[in-house]
């Protein structure tokens, strides 16, 4: 039998570089308001004996925590999503396994959830040296441009949301990192919260914007997801039409030279470029069309709207 749903679940994915979990837990615990029913879910990404010992000691001391140990290290977003699935609380708080944030900010995070569904977290000051801060700002201004709104730090180890949000959004892969954006897009209420960075910022590129290229790919994937999944041809169509148009114009121009100036076409490699662009344009449009057919085929199973309430 499942125990009574806790009011607040704290999920801490533990992987790679984790800090002193006992001290961390004490700090998190101290920052929590007393009145709420709290459960802690620690997810160990693979065999981490040191972390296991620390958490077992906490458990023996009577701390309300649950330990989930994965059979092997999965890395990336897996421990996080398993932790969320194993937690029961109506509100979920995901906290990092290192002192990345100042725990004093946790109450403000919970207060933000009172009137909203998701807290969009920023950590200030941006941790790391000048080079890292520079990349952070580049990445985030690009994200703001692509996604259309500047909401939260992407890849920050802190998430706070109501359970209804993850039940409605299909989160897979690294999508959790974009939770505030996806939730905002789905009409959930998102409030910004600024936390102070903690004693130790993230070190190696375990996750987050540091693993630059992968983060960029993720960003592009979410950009497509937000803008064009329903209408792929609206993305591919203009690109293909542009390529086709350019190739067509080039070919017509060359044909004109042949007809009116008598330039021999067989000696014009530029014609190859024109034909190549035409071919590429048609191919891009055809791919968009295939996307459209896939969407159309599944459209009856997709619900594009979310009902807030029904009256009467």
């Amino acid at each position: 039998m499942r125990e009574r749903a806790a009011g607040l679940s704290v999920v801490v994915p533990v992987s790679g570089f984790f800090g002193d979990l006992e001290a961390l837990h004490a700090a998190y615990r101290a920052a929590m308001p007393d009145e709420t029913v709290i459960e802690f879910v620690y997810v160990l990404d693979g065999d981490l004996p040191e972390a296991m010992r620390a958490l077992s000691r906490l458990r023996e001391a009577g701390e309300p925590l649950r330990i989930v140990k994965l059979a092997r290290p999965f890395g990336g977003p897996v421990p996080l999503s398993i932790g969320i699935r194993r937690s029961t609380g109506e509100r979920v708080l995901v906290l990092p396994c290192r002192p990345e944030i100042d725990p004093a900010g946790i109450p403000s995070l919970l207060r933000a959830l009172d009137g909203a569904d998701v807290a969009a977290v920023r950590c200030r000051p941006v941790p790391g040296g000048a080079w890292r801060r520079f990349r952070f700002h580049i990445f985030h201004s690009l994200a703001a441009r692509l996604l259309g709104y500047d909401l939260a730090d992407i890849g920050v180890g802190v998430l706070a949301f109501r359970r209804t949000v993850v039940e409605e959004l299909l989160l897979y892969g690294d999508r959790h990192r974009f939770l505030p954006f996806l939730a905002f897009r789905h009409g959930f209420r998102v409030v910004p919260v600024v936390l102070r960075s903690g004693a130790e910022p993230r070190p190696a590129p375990v996750r987050g914007e540091a693993s630059g290229f992968r983060a960029l790919l993720d960003l592009l994937a979410v950009f497509f997801l937000l803008r064009f999944t329903k209408r792929p041809l609206r993305f591919f169509g203009p690109i293909g039409a542009g390529l086709f148009g350019a190739g067509f114009a080039l070919s017509v121009w060359l044909a004109g030279q042949k007809l009116f100036l008598g330039v021999r076409l067989a000696d014009r490699p530029l014609l190859l470029l024109g034909v190549l662009l035409i071919v590429l344009g048609v191919q891009v449009v055809a791919l968009g069309l295939i996307g459209e057919i896939v969407v159309y085929t599944h459209a009856r199973d997709i619900k594009e709207y979310a009902v807030e309430e029904i009256v009467g």
């Binding site: 789905h186 709207y305 979310a306 009902v307 029904i310 009256v311």
Partner: peptide, 17 residues
């Protein structure tokens, strides 16, 4: 009866709702 959608989704999805 009134069905309220959480956000503006456009005429077609609203009609589908």
């Amino acid at each position: 009866r009134v069905v309220r959608l959480r956000r503006n989704v456009g005429q077609t999805p609203a009609m589908a709702a």
